[in-house]
Protein backbone atom coordinates (compact mmCIF):
# COMPACT_ATOMS: atom_id res chain seq x y z
CA UNK A 1 0.00 0.00 0.00
CA UNK A 2 2.77 2.40 1.04
CA UNK A 3 4.59 1.54 -2.16
CA UNK A 4 1.67 2.79 -4.22
CA UNK A 5 1.66 6.07 -2.27
CA UNK A 6 5.34 6.68 -3.11
CA UNK A 7 4.70 5.99 -6.78
CA UNK A 8 1.72 8.37 -6.68
CA UNK A 9 3.78 11.09 -4.99
CA UNK A 10 6.40 10.70 -7.72
CA UNK A 11 3.73 10.64 -10.41
CA UNK A 12 2.25 13.89 -9.14
CA UNK A 13 5.74 15.42 -8.83
CA UNK A 14 6.49 14.44 -12.44
CA UNK A 15 3.34 16.08 -13.74
CA UNK A 16 3.99 19.27 -11.72
CA UNK A 17 7.61 19.48 -12.93
CA UNK A 18 6.59 19.03 -16.55
CA UNK A 19 3.52 21.26 -16.51
CA UNK A 20 5.24 24.06 -14.56
CA UNK A 21 7.96 24.02 -17.27
CA UNK A 22 10.59 23.71 -14.53
CA UNK A 23 11.77 20.66 -16.51
CA UNK A 24 12.40 22.73 -19.64
CA UNK A 25 15.95 23.72 -20.56
CA UNK A 26 14.54 27.02 -21.86
CA UNK A 27 13.15 28.05 -18.48
CA UNK A 28 16.46 27.30 -16.72
CA UNK A 29 18.34 29.32 -19.32
CA UNK A 30 15.86 32.18 -18.94
CA UNK A 31 16.20 32.04 -15.14
CA UNK A 32 19.98 32.42 -15.28
CA UNK A 33 19.49 35.35 -17.67
CA UNK A 34 17.15 37.02 -15.11
CA UNK A 35 14.69 37.58 -17.96
CA UNK A 36 11.55 36.17 -16.39
CA UNK A 37 9.98 35.83 -12.97
CA UNK A 38 8.60 32.36 -13.75
CA UNK A 39 11.24 30.11 -12.13
CA UNK A 40 11.78 32.50 -9.22
CA UNK A 41 8.02 32.49 -8.70
CA UNK A 42 7.94 28.68 -8.57
CA UNK A 43 10.88 28.39 -6.15
CA UNK A 44 9.69 31.38 -4.09
CA UNK A 45 6.13 30.07 -3.71
CA UNK A 46 7.37 26.56 -2.87
CA UNK A 47 9.67 28.06 -0.28
CA UNK A 48 7.06 30.36 1.26
CA UNK A 49 4.61 27.49 1.77
CA UNK A 50 7.46 25.13 2.66
CA UNK A 51 8.62 27.36 5.51
CA UNK A 52 5.06 27.60 6.86
CA UNK A 53 4.52 23.83 6.59
CA UNK A 54 7.78 23.03 8.41
CA UNK A 55 7.06 25.59 11.15
CA UNK A 56 3.57 24.13 11.68
CA UNK A 57 4.98 20.57 11.84
CA UNK A 58 7.53 21.67 14.42
CA UNK A 59 5.21 23.88 16.47
CA UNK A 60 2.52 21.24 16.88
CA UNK A 61 5.11 18.42 17.11
CA UNK A 62 3.18 16.51 14.46
CA UNK A 63 4.20 12.88 14.09
CA UNK A 64 4.66 11.02 10.82
CA UNK A 65 2.19 8.27 9.88
CA UNK A 66 4.45 5.60 11.42
CA UNK A 67 4.17 7.44 14.75
CA UNK A 68 7.71 8.81 14.88
CA UNK A 69 8.42 12.50 15.45
CA UNK A 70 9.23 14.35 12.24
CA UNK A 71 12.84 15.44 12.50
CA UNK A 72 14.75 17.22 9.78
CA UNK A 73 18.37 16.49 10.58
CA UNK A 74 20.49 19.63 10.41
CA UNK A 75 23.24 19.41 7.80
CA UNK A 76 26.80 19.30 9.09
CA UNK A 77 28.46 22.69 9.44
CA UNK A 78 30.81 23.59 6.64
CA UNK A 79 31.32 26.30 4.07
CA UNK A 80 33.63 24.82 1.45
CA UNK A 81 31.65 21.69 0.61
CA UNK A 82 28.40 23.58 0.10
CA UNK A 83 29.98 26.41 -1.85
CA UNK A 84 32.31 24.34 -4.07
CA UNK A 85 29.84 21.49 -4.50
CA UNK A 86 27.09 24.02 -5.15
CA UNK A 87 29.10 25.79 -7.86
CA UNK A 88 29.92 22.49 -9.58
CA UNK A 89 26.24 21.49 -9.46
CA UNK A 90 25.16 24.91 -10.78
CA UNK A 91 27.50 24.61 -13.77
CA UNK A 92 25.88 21.29 -14.68
CA UNK A 93 22.34 22.49 -13.94
CA UNK A 94 22.73 25.37 -16.40
CA UNK A 95 24.52 23.31 -19.06
CA UNK A 96 22.11 20.38 -19.12
CA UNK A 97 19.17 22.64 -18.23
CA UNK A 98 17.83 20.10 -15.77
CA UNK A 99 18.42 19.14 -12.16
CA UNK A 100 17.99 15.53 -10.93
CA UNK A 101 14.18 15.61 -10.45
CA UNK A 102 13.44 16.92 -13.96
CA UNK A 103 16.04 14.52 -15.41
CA UNK A 104 13.88 11.59 -14.26
CA UNK A 105 10.74 13.33 -15.53
CA UNK A 106 12.26 13.94 -18.97
CA UNK A 107 13.44 10.33 -19.25
CA UNK A 108 9.79 9.35 -18.76
CA UNK A 109 8.67 11.98 -21.28
CA UNK A 110 10.73 10.06 -23.83
CA UNK A 111 13.69 12.35 -24.58
CA UNK A 112 16.38 9.80 -25.34
CA UNK A 113 19.41 12.18 -25.07
CA UNK A 114 18.53 12.91 -21.42
CA UNK A 115 19.43 9.27 -20.68
CA UNK A 116 23.04 10.28 -21.40
CA UNK A 117 22.72 13.03 -18.76
CA UNK A 118 21.22 10.55 -16.26
CA UNK A 119 23.95 7.97 -16.87
CA UNK A 120 26.76 10.51 -16.56
CA UNK A 121 25.19 12.05 -13.45
CA UNK A 122 25.30 8.57 -11.89
CA UNK A 123 28.95 8.27 -12.93
CA UNK A 124 29.58 11.75 -11.46
CA UNK A 125 28.10 10.59 -8.17
CA UNK A 126 30.34 7.51 -8.30
CA UNK A 127 33.44 9.66 -8.96
CA UNK A 128 32.58 11.81 -5.94
CA UNK A 129 32.37 8.68 -3.78
CA UNK A 130 35.80 7.56 -5.01
CA UNK A 131 37.69 10.82 -4.38
CA UNK A 132 35.63 12.39 -1.60
CA UNK A 133 38.30 11.88 1.07
CA UNK A 134 40.73 13.98 -0.95
CA UNK A 135 38.31 16.93 -1.25
CA UNK A 136 37.92 19.82 1.20
CA UNK A 137 34.69 19.41 3.18
Amino acid sequence: MKQIIYILIGFFFGIVMYKSEAASWFRIYEMFQFQSFHMYGIIGTALAFGIVFVQVLKHYKIKSIDGNPIVILPKEKSFSRYMIGGIIFGLGWALAGACPGPIFVLVGAGYLPIVIVLASATVGTFLYGIIKDKLPH
Partner: peptide, 16 residues
Protein backbone atom coordinates in the same frame (compact mmCIF):
# COMPACT_ATOMS: atom_id res chain seq x y z
CA UNK B 1 25.27 16.11 -22.19
CA UNK B 2 28.02 13.99 -20.61
CA UNK B 3 29.83 16.93 -18.99
CA UNK B 4 26.53 18.40 -17.80
CA UNK B 5 25.56 15.09 -16.20
CA UNK B 6 28.98 14.56 -14.56
CA UNK B 7 28.88 18.05 -13.00
CA UNK B 8 25.31 17.53 -11.75
CA UNK B 9 26.04 14.15 -10.15
CA UNK B 10 29.40 15.11 -8.68
CA UNK B 11 28.28 18.55 -7.47
CA UNK B 12 25.01 17.37 -5.96
CA UNK B 13 26.72 14.77 -3.78
CA UNK B 14 29.61 17.08 -2.87
CA UNK B 15 27.10 19.75 -1.80
CA UNK B 16 24.94 17.11 -0.10
Amino acid sequence: LIVGGLLIGFGARYAG
